[in-house]
Design a protein around this nucleic acid. Sequence first.
DNA 1: GTCCAGGACTCGC
DNA 2: GCGAGTCATGGA
Length: 298
Amino acid sequence: MAEQLVIPAPGDFSFPECLAYLMRSADECMFRVEDGVVTRALEVEGEPVIFGMSDHPDGVAVRFLDGYRPAGQTGMDKVAGYVRDWLDLDRDLRPFYELGEGDPILREAVREHRGLRVVGIPDLFETFVWAILGQQITVAFAYVLKKRFVETFGTAVEAGGRTYWIFPEASKVAGLEPGVLRELKITGRKSEYIIGTARLIADGELTKEGLLELRDDKLIQKELTDIRGIGPWTANYLLMRCLRSPDAYPAADVGLHNALKLAAGMDRKPTLPEVETFAEPWTGWRAYATFYLWRLLH
DNA sequence: GTCCAGGACTCGC
DNA sequence: GCGAGTCATGGA
């Protein structure tokens, strides 16, 4: 696996911090982490590509597995773009750190995890499924459900004695009956939500580009919450992880509440109004604040 | 057994 | 518009 490309990163980027986040579950099925290298498969121009990314003095090193490298420059650029999106490499975090250093609640998380980026989920359908699965259950169980889902409907790429998974296309899920997902222990409602969004995406009614064109977070949130199964938490989660809003704020998030309790030294979880009030000074960076606060829980 | 997890829907008022 | 009940599984 010869070195193929180095993706330059701006200052305030720490690969190890992003890696620590990526390693939070042994049940993660979309990539594997070994010896500091994150390896995954991706479909690029109709062909499976497998690449590993690791730390590099100038940013992120990307190496391709022999036999699974992009055919041409366009494919190479797509992988580079994917990594830039995945790790949010095009963002200048200086304003956030300026904010965080002066904030009593954020200070510790910001100092402890400097260089961490909001790790994204570039694929819209994948984010929908992940967000819906994550509603109201433990993250650990959500990982188990995602693994079952991917291993049932996704595409396996066997290479180098290992199996890599490509997330299923929305069109493959759009025609399923909810009962099929129920067998995986996904609740009936979530099964309907997943199939419903799969249909919207497969039909082209719902696209990442179309959502991004709305520009405004509030408009996007409205568009998303009009979809059955997508409430405020899920909409903001999508904004944060896929649409890359630095300001999305999943205020109802239980993990956020626990982190705020910890960071603010409270003896109880904050109420929803308190959660909103805490975040007022973070306006513009509430997604980053949330992501950093989450890290306090690990 | 009870409660809680990275919520959202439905219903009654 | 708001509160309470329901959904469903798994771990503490």
